[in-house]
């Protein structure tokens, strides 16, 4: 005899994260594109042997199908149906460790101010933004290499990050930047004799 409690035992369906769906879809599109390109490169050469397009085509088709299956799984698999496997033991421990790490990260016992601040004194919002600014800064620095040279461009990027993004004092920022630039120049420029681009400035 069944009751309503039995219905509760049916695991619910997964609620996929948007990021998972988007990331997997991108992979699927890339896979589909690679498969088509593989045809274009030629699947076989004379004698029916493997041609330059065979592996891209197979791999691309595989990525496309696997991504489609993954999207299907994300939407239609039921929560908790992965138990009973060898790997589920590992996953359980992994989940416990992740929870423990998050608990420590959230507790911040030494932080008497907002629980949101980390030891850098940054809020979660600032932490989320930081990688974006850092990528942008390094992107600009790389674009400036033909003008400023490798070391000066990267040093300028570091100085900008420390002063503007990390809001450090100017003298500690300057000292860190100069220290890093000198260290890198000694190791790569002098010891390893790497011919580093000096740009239009032609300094170092």
């Amino acid at each position: 005899m069944s009751t309503a409690t039995d219905t509760e035992k049916i695991p619910p369906r997964n609620k996929p994260d948007l990021a998972d769906v988007v990331g997997t879809s991108i992979l699927g599109v890339v896979g589909g594109f690679a498969a088509i390109m593989g045809f274009h490169y030629g699947l076989t050469v004379e004698g029916g042997q493997v041609g330059p397009g065979m592996l891209p085509c197979l791999t691309g088709a595989f990525i496309f199908l696997a991504s489609a299956a993954e999207i299907f799984r994300l939407f239609f698999a039921r929560v908790g149906t992965s138990g009973g496997r060898i790997m589920s033991v590992v996953e359980d421990i992994e989940a416990t460790a992740a929870e423990s790490i998050d608990a420590v990260a959230e507790s911040h016992p030494d932080d008497d101010s907002s629980g949101d601040l980390d030891t850098f004194g940054r809020t979660e919002k600032q932490r989320n933004r930081a990688p974006f600014y850092i990528f942008l800064t390094f992107g600009v620095a790389l674009a400036l290499i033909p003008v400023l040279g490798l070391i000066i461009s990267l040093a300028a990027a570091i100085l900008f990050l420390l002063l503007v993004v990390e809001k450090q004092k100017w003298w500690t920022s300057a000292a860190t930047t100069i220290g890093a630039a000198v260290f890198v120049y000694i190791v790569f420029g002098l010891v390893l004799s790497v011919p580093m681009p000096t740009g239009l400035l032609g300094l170092i």
Partner: peptide, 12 residues
């Protein structure tokens, strides 16, 4: 910043 600088110069 130093690790990132090392990474880029090392890759070069």
């Amino acid at each position: 910043p130093i690790v990132l600088m090392m990474s880029f110069v090392g890759a070069f």
